[in-house]
Design a protein around this nucleic acid. Structure first.
Lengths: 391, 391
DNA sequence: CTTCTTTCATTGACAGCGGAAAATAAGGAG
DNA sequence: CTCCTTATTTTCCGCTGTCAATGAAAGAAG
């Protein structure tokens, strides 16, 4: 995290303290005893770690009138005061920048987006700065300081250094984005890969809470995958990880932009579906929405394309499950708008291709509004804020 | 680890101490300063942790006369005294039990194997006990105590509980192997999946030393894969992980015993190769060795089978690399005897199917004598011995 | 209304770990 | 013999987290 303005910093310097805070943050209001249990610490340690966090206003005490036990002293719940600090998350796509203002609990307070004219770093940075400025004004209105900015970009991103190594889509190489954005906005900046950012959000605030191993699969313009193993997001030795989109599903399948044939992405991405629906039906559909329309109208050719796409995704997920044995797979992404068209095929293909007990992993689906990508970016900023040695 | 005889235990109770010992164990003789650097600790901490380990005889000091620096005080090397404790590793296969006696550095001192008449737990346990008895006599001859027994079994094994959940090959279910073997042999017993055990051996004593993410791919009777992510062996939520053998490579390929088509294992396992070579050449080869013989003789049909097998393995490895971004992939296994027949195809398929920087992961090959499987089992015993919270 | 019982939370003493800095050791060079 | 350099050890010292004991906050029992 590149941090120019070292304002008052988060008062959890020991690993145990930040672990305790993280537990409360993601597992909702808990009694101190319960926190101790989940964090594997003594109750005394929790009491001691919680006090300064309460004094600093990051945690607050609550009494749960409802679930008062029949016997014994009632517990005091501890929860995070979301309003204590705000964060901005920014997702850069090819044609727009999406920004959200969230609270410390990563709840979206404001969402904005600005179309993007050009993709060169200067243009993007300028637009992003404008968006951040708008959100800062909103934050001012709330009277709460913004404690960090997270930026999510597709491609090979080095979070530790805050550098975008290579983003094919934006045609950026070795861009020190964190440093640049920190200079422009005056905020501490965290930069990460977009799918990993989304995965962080799921891990701390979503369907991955409490799990030590899970996968997030995004379906849309591309097919992406974020992996959490041993409780940590997998980053890969060379910045590559979770490339489920380029798992080969059918070596005789359509050619993929990566050069191979039959990648999941060449069969199930929005583009691939549009292309295949056009070929199958002869209708020149403009985008995935129209393609889904044809399928919803019952046009056989279009429905088959979705069936094949679902099959490809299901096989891809099965591959992940076979290799890593995640506790859960979370399917998400804009493509889920047409989820009814391939849900069954995903499930069938997964059930067939998963080996043995790997099939016991539960497959969840979550709608993913586009803002969520930006929320993921905010989640990385929150993570960096809480523990500077984040990862 | 099921431990009936709690003899004198290993004197490294803090996490740092066992981390220091592990560093010295796997990274060979090191100066204290170098240990400190690699373990991320201060020199003082290393000095303090090393002393009791030297007093207990697990570490010894060495002077490296050769590489004395021109300037300054020469360093004292610290290394593990392999002779301080012995371990027994046992690998159970369908038709034999292989056992090795190793020292603390996991060097094989004696290797034995006994054919197996039946596969039921009682028969296997009896034979294993016999083998262990023989190795204990060898150990007695050396005058060193055996500090642990590791057992490696294929299938779903719960190492923490020491229970074989389900081994399809042996037809065992929910067998508390660690407990049974501990009662029979009187030794502390660790039980793990065979491929994971091999992976532990590579991680601590082989080509995975010092890497935080790598994969071991075994080629032979089956196609297996052990994964290390974030420095830890991946176990999978339901005991399944690393099932590269059932990654689909060609949905139109040959049927696999798992019910699907075109799994790597259905194309590249010994059995699959024999079957395909028979079909391609009409020669009723008896085993993989004869099949390789035909290919070495230049018979086109046989060579093609190996080409396809290499292609399948290379694609499988590429899938792992795309998903996890390991720093290295170690190809190993009995099948490597015919490595010259498919090496190029593995490399080509990997280079083609790996996405972007994932192709930068280095692919190593290591011959794997059958004893190595048993050595892997011994490695798990050593691991358990060193840190009781092993995983 | 007092006392018990039960469970949650806090306190204070304390042990141990690991770091920083200073001291010591072990060479070679001059 | 002294100085310089690098390795190792020693000597504090602060900090963390545990333990065991104590306080607190109910409802239950009498």
């Amino acid at each position: 995290m590149s941090s120019p303005s070292a304002v008052e910093s988060f008062p959890a310097h020991t690993s145990a303290a930040s672990q305790i805070f993280t537990t409360v943050l993601s597992q909702g209001p808990l009694t101190r005893l319960e926190v101790a249990r989940r964090a594997g610490l003594s109750a005394a340690a929790v009491t001691k770690a919680v006090r300064p966090l309460i004094e600093a206003g990051y945690l607050v005490e609550d009494v749960d009138e409802d679930s008062r036990p029949a016997l014994g002293r009632p517990a005091n719940l501890v929860r995070v005061d979301g309003g204590r600090a705000l964060f901005i998350g920014v997702k850069v796509t090819g044609d727009a920048i999406i920004g959200v203002l969230t609270d410390l609990c990563c709840r979206i307070l404001v969402a904005r987006h600005i179309p993007l004219a050009a993709r060169d770093p200067k243009a993007v940075l300028g637009t992003a700065a404008e968006l951040v400025r708008e959100l800062l004004i909103e934050a001012d209105g709330l009277g709460v300081r913004v404690a960090g900015l997270g930026m999510a970009v597709s491609g090979d991103v080095d979070r530790a250094e805050g550098v975008v190594r290579y983003s094919p889509f934006l045609e950026w190489r070795e861009l020190p984005l964190a440093e640049l954005a920190a200079m422009t906005t005056g905020l501490p900046v965290t930069v990460d890969n977009d799918v990993r950012a989304l995965t962080v959000a799921e891990q701390w605030f979503g369907a991955g809470v409490g799990l030590s191993g899970f996968a997030v699969v995004t379906v849309g313009a591309g097919i992406g995958c974020g992996l959490v193993v041993h409780g940590r997001v997998v980053a890969g030795a060379h910045g590559v990880a979770g490339e489920i989109g380029h798992v080969t599903v059918d070596p005789a399948g359509p050619r993929c932009h990566c050069g191979n044939r039959g990648c999941v992405e060449a069969i199930a991405s929005d583009d691939a579906i549009v292309r295949q629906v056009r070929a199958a039906t002869g209708v020149q559909v403009a985008d995935a929405i129209e393609a889904a329309g044809l399928a919803h109208d019952g046009i056989a050719g279009a429905r088959e394309v979705y069936a094949r796409a679902g099959d490809a995704i299901g096989r891809g997920i099965a591959t992940v499950a076979n290799l890593l044995g995640p506790e859960r797979v979370i399917i998400s992404g804009e493509g889920l708008a047409a989820y009814d068209l391939f849900a069954d095929h995903i499930r069938d293909a997964f059930a067939t291709a998963a080996f043995g007990s790997a099939a016991r992993c539960d497959v969840w689906t979550r709608p993913l509004p586009f803002d969520e990508w930006a929320r993921g970016a905010a989640a990385t900023a929150i993570q960096s804020f809480i523990r500077s040695d984040a990862n």
